[in-house]
Design a protein around this nucleic acid. Structure first.
Lengths: 195, 195
DNA sequence: CCTTGAACTGAACGCCTGTTCAGATAAGGA
DNA sequence: TCCTTATCTGAACAGGCGTTCAGTTCAAGG
């Protein structure tokens, strides 16, 4: 499937995923039909099955690609030594990365219940791996005495929830620049861990 | 409709809403059929239309009742004088109220896009009113110098996102008691506003 | 006892769903 | 030029959807 010498454009697959991403984010997985997705790419519904075995796998692929990209991007960030600077790097990275992918983040947070049990397990594992990235920073800061947090796990979840919340209201060209938002949130995050 | 002398139980309406609440939270509005809801209450699908004009109004009613209850409950809370104590009262109230209504909160956060424009406007207004409750506390604390927040609106949204995030992981009988969770989060909220 | 009327059933309406598949199309290699 | 092969269409399938409505049931009021 999808050989190097495909007769047509060989970029239809990504176009399908892109359309599905936008439509799922807009209307929700269950409310979007295969025919709508196909029409967005200029195809008939049947043709989609050249690019995905079924609708649910299409959803899973979108989430999976998003989370893999998230983990890869975070790994690629240069990490400072001091925990407080690591936490700042995380804060800015998280806001920036998530704001650049409103649709994918929305889907990854809202459509978990539409995954099969096996697919859900895979996604949850990736999500957990990302959380662990933040938690290990908090642990390091706890060890050096830079942070004072009563519960590492709760602090991890609270910070991620707070930061991801930006996605629900921030829009390009609004009252505050993205950089300003990052600074303000960093200020709150820093103080929430007592640093 | 629903006169005082109804011949049957006259509690079917609430039972329908209760079933719809649970099913919508579990599977999502679009994925749940009227026949499923009816079956949960022991009725045929047609009978549901004695209690709601259509499926979408049923969703709207659930959200509307939830938010009205939220506002009423917060108004009923006795407010301390000092802003910092008001903020603590808000934190504990928010966590407690939301943890007692997992399904309704989930729906109110996830199914906004399935509302008609007019219904959405009503719900958004109520949500905004609740946010204003927190924001006025932050303003009061800013005025007295008790809090140091660079941006009142952002702090409001960040705190609410952080607190509502508890719903995604807290389960009765878990590692931490609800009271302990409330204390830990209050600690983080307090520090995030520099108090 | 008879009438009223709310509560409910069961069938039907037109439409949409995810998925399959035989057949058409057209480009590349030999 | 012919053959192979990836790509895509258009129709079909079985089933589910929200909603309507004529007709049945049955408790309560007069």
């Amino acid at each position: 499937m999808a050989r190097k010498t495909g007769s047509h454009s060989q970029i239809t697959g990504p176009l399908v995923r892109q359309a599905a991403l936008r439509l799922f984010a807009q209307g929700g997985y269950a409310a979007v039909s295969m025919r709508q997705i196909a029409s967005e790419v200029g195809l008939q519904a049947g043709a989609l099955y050249l690019y995905t075995p079924d609708k649910q796998t299409l959803l899973f692929t979108l989430m999976h690609e998003h989370l893999e990209e998230l983990l890869t991007a975070w790994e690629a960030v240069e990490k400072p030594v001091a925990p407080i600077e690591q936490l700042q790097a995380f804060t800015r990275f998280h806001i920036r990365f998530h704001l650049e992918r409103l649709d994918a983040v929305f889907i990854a947070n809202m459509e978990l219940r539409n995954l099969s049990d096996e697919n859900f397990a895979v996604i949850e594992k990736l999500r957990k791996a990302y959380e662990d990235g933040l938690q290990s920073i908090l642990e390091a800061g706890h060890a050096t005495g830079a942070f004072r947090v009563p519960d590492l796990k709760l602090a991890t979840l609270a910070i991620i929830a707070m930061l991801t919340g930006v996605n629900t209201w921030y829009r390009e060209g609004g009252r505050l620049s993205r950089d300003r938002v990052e600074r303000i949130y960093w200020n709150m995050v820093r103080r929430s861990v007592g640093a």
